[in-house]
């Protein structure tokens, strides 16, 4: 059991009429990344706030680093780092002052706190801006400073609440690099995200939360198998060549699948969908289509969108959810 660095059972929290958490179980293995995926308002932030000792649940138990979050919050606080959804650095303080303050609150000596601040600022490429108030920073710089702030105490468990929301793709990849390096050094990371792509890139396991309930807990691959993985989509210019194209593309389809006309309405009408195992399938498909002399107006790789994931997952959990709702009414 000591292998689990986060363990929560039956967490419930109600805010007025909103049941933010409706019986959430979570577990994260030491040295791994757990992705908590869900749309806005699903309860992701509430779950993180409970685990990070900021909020007491109405019901349920939680352990972080083997310590009871409700009974010994101070001991938990010495072992965690938290980066909230909104960059919570102090705008009037400089980068250095922000980090030194947190070091002092973590009981480092002032000298150690300063040394640690210098290290982190250098690592996050903020050395030049170290002496400027954080309000002069760009959005990406603030986010980096915020992340640096959560690492001051070398935490065992790092909670990142939507760390890349609003960042451009290049900055997002930088963040991913930071998360991976922390895990390499032995930390465990729980991150919430609205992006399936991000959870896929970072997480060892993914929990999908919807309306305060866990509707799926799986590896990224397992999740994708359930909702459909990478898809190659081709739209032949000449509709008459569709049967030829289907034959050609069958050859690059993932084992056990085949090319088919996309049955979705709207923009995808007339396109062929091919479930593929890896993105290298496009390297096979392109020359094959050329050899067969099939011209196309559109060709691309698509990951299932978060919408599709939810569509697929909520469909399969609709039945138990309605019965649960009825039980609630009876109670």
């Amino acid at each position: 059991m000591s292998d689990l660095v986060v363990r929560a059972e039956g967490l419930r929290k109600r805010f007025g009429k909103t049941q933010a958490l409706d019986g959430v179980d979570l577990s994260m293995r030491r040295g791994t990344v757990l992705g908590v995926l869900g749309p806005n308002g699903a309860g992701k932030t509430t779950a993180v706030r409970v685990l990070a000792t900021l909020l007491r649940p109405d019901e349920g138990t939680a352990e972080v680093a083997g310590i009871d979050v409700l009974k010994q919050p101070q001991r938990v606080r010495r072992r965690i780092g938290l980066t909230g959804q909104y960059a919570s650095v102090d705008e009037d303080l400089t980068g250095t002052q922000n980090l030194v303050l947190i070091g002092q609150l973590l009981d480092l000596t002032t000298r150690d706190a300063k040394r640690r601040a210098v290290e982190l600022l250098e690592w996050f490429d903020l050395t030049e801006a170290a002496g400027r108030p954080a309000k002069t920073y760009s959005g990406g710089m603030r986010r980096r400073l915020d992340l640096a702030a959560s690492l001051v105490g070398h935490p065992e468990v790092i909670f990142l609440d939507e760390p890349t929301t609003g960042l451009d793709p290049a900055k997002r990849e930088d963040m991913w690099g930071v998360v991976r390096s922390q895990v390499t050094q032995g930390a465990s990371v729980l991150l919430t995200t609205q992006y399936l792509e991000e959870a896929d890139a970072l997480a060892d396991e993914i929990v999908v939360i919807h309306h305060g309930r866990v509707i799926a807990f799986d590896t990224p691959d397992g999740l994708k198998r359930r909702v459909g993985g990478l898809t190659l989509r081709v739209r032949p210019s000449d509709p008459a060549r569709v049967p030829d194209a289907l034959r050609v593309l069958d050859a690059v389809a993932a084992p056990g699948t085949g090319a088919s006309m996309d049955d979705a309405a709207g923009a995808r009408r007339g396109a062929i969908s091919v479930p593929v195992a890896t993105d290298t399938a496009i390297d096979e498909a392109l020359p094959a289509l050329r050899r067969a002399g099939i011209e196309f107006s559109d060709l691309g790789l698509h990951l299932p969108s978060l919408d599709e994931v939810f569509h697929s997952l909520t469909e399969s959990t609709t039945a138990p959810q309605t019965t649960a709702a009825k039980e609630d009414e009876l109670v």
Binding site: R77, G81, I102
Partner: peptide, 13 residues
């Protein structure tokens, strides 16, 4: 409102 105190509350003070 800005979330600065969330960080303080997550620290062992």
């Amino acid at each position: 409102e800005k979330g600065v105190f969330d960080r303080f509350r997550s620290l062992p003070v």
